[in-house]
Design a protein around this nucleic acid. Structure first.
Length: 255
DNA sequence: ATGGCATTGCAACAATGA
């Protein structure tokens, strides 16, 4: 089974590229983030024509997440249903072939000290609490998406340039550690301990040609899934050419 | 110290991202 996470930075702007990429690679499960639109604007018929089932959780203009799967998605959850009134569409989950797949778009956080940053920290705590309530670390589960957290200094081209930012600081890393302590492991990092492999490059300043990137798109798996992971890679080709997202797809293969 | 670049919604740039 192959599983991919990709922040597409608008599914409408990326539609042609997404469909061509799906048709070419036929991944089994795809977690998409930053749809930037409501469900009605998602190219559902086109992905279905390629053999995918889909669950879409969107909103106008911002955020939005979806899971595509070649086999049916069941036990679908849109949002965390934790009693907090939150209009931001940042989480969708479903069971696929016995694996709980959770697709997340963690808030960016703007600047440390802002309301958006406090929302990011609170959202990460809610995610940890939601997992604690609704899932078990001894069962197959993967949380994948754009975490907007640089896990270690090996995951930044220039850690000093980002240190103290909303993406790279001890507090957000502590929130990531809380998720890992619950029972999730960063399966990409496990397969690439040397680091220096990135998933996002700024559109500006020739960041991609100079490989000035960050690894912020993560796949966190419980032990039963992590033990099945035999490969993990970044599809850098999707950051090239006409109208790319600023994020590349991150793949894992489970045996 | 700032912008750069891209996207959406709206019809001018403002909000947002990372």
């Amino acid at each position: 089974m192959t599983l991919v996470t990709w922040n597409v930075n608008s599914v409408r702007a990326r539609e042609a590229r997404l469909l061509a990429w799906l048709e070419r690679h036929l991944p089994d499960v795809v977690c998409l983030q930053d749809l930037k639109g409501v469900e009605a604007t998602f190219p559902l018929a086109a992905v279905q024509a390629l053999g995918y089932h889909a669950v879409v959780h969107g909103q106008p203009t911002y955020n939005g997440v979806a899971i595509l799967s070649r086999t049916p998605l069941v036990e679908v959850a849109r949002g965390m249903d934790d009693g907090i009134d939150d209009p931001q569409a940042r989480l969708v989950a479903a069971d696929i072939d016995g694996i709980r797949v959770v697709c997340v778009y963690v808030p960016n956080g703007a600047e440390v000290g802002t309301e958006k940053y406090e929302y990011k920290l609170a959202w990460l705590r809610r995610l940890r609490d939601w997992l604690g309530r609704t899932a078990r670390p001894d069962l197959p589960l993967v949380v994948c998406g754009d975490f907007n957290i640089v896990p270690t200094d090996l995951d930044a081209h220039d850690a000093e340039a980002w240190r103290g930012s909303v993406l790279l600081n001890d507090v957000v890393r502590g929130r990531l550690a809380d998720l890992q302590d619950w029972g999730l492991s960063d399966v990409f990092a496990r397969r690439h301990p040397e680091g220096r492999l990135y998933t996002w490059w700024d559109y500006r300043n020739l960041a991609f040609p100079t490989n000035a990137g960050l690894r912020i798109d993560l796949l966190l798996a419980t032990r039963p899934v992590a033990d099945r992971c035999v490969d993990a890679w970044v599809d850098r080709d999707q950051r090239k050419g006409e109208k790319p997202s600023d994020h590349a797809p991150v793949w894992i293969r489970l045996d």
